[in-house]
Write a protein that binds this DNA or RNA. Structure first.
Length: 97
DNA sequence: CCCATGACTAGAC
DNA sequence: GGTCTAGCCATGG
């Protein structure tokens, strides 16, 4: 993907506050042309050792996306106060912006 | 070039 | 609420 688009995606990601979450679609909508799939790809391709809050990105249905790091993602969100309901969904008022 | 593959989504049942 | 489907579009074979 275009480096400029990736940069937009990661810049927005870096602005998601602790204790809040956002969705692939919302990030995509804030960029100049990215789609949810591209946002997902950008996260998947993040280099090891980065400090971006990749775990604050969830799906439009407020569930964790289907990927290998979902368990760690849930732990890290809970660790900063994001609670899940009995069906595994994040409360709507945790969404950013 | 064609085809399959996704950390997805909106809409239809 | 859940499941399916078509759309999505860069990427790699």
């Amino acid at each position: 993907m275009k480096p400029e688009l990736r940069e937009q995606i990661l810049t927005i990601l870096a602005e998601v506050p602790a204790g809040r979450v956002t969705t692939y679609g919302r990030i995509a909508a804030m960029t100049d042309g990215a789609t949810p799939r591209l946002v997902a790809r950008a996260l998947r391709e993040l280099p090891a050792g980065h400090d971006l809050p990749w775990f604050r990105v969830i799906t439009a249905s407020r569930r964790l996306a289907d990927h290998g790091g979902a368990d760690e993602q849930r732990r890290r969100l809970v660790a900063e106060g994001v609670l899940f309901d009995t069906r595994g969904r994040v409360a709507a008022d945790r969404l950013w912006p």
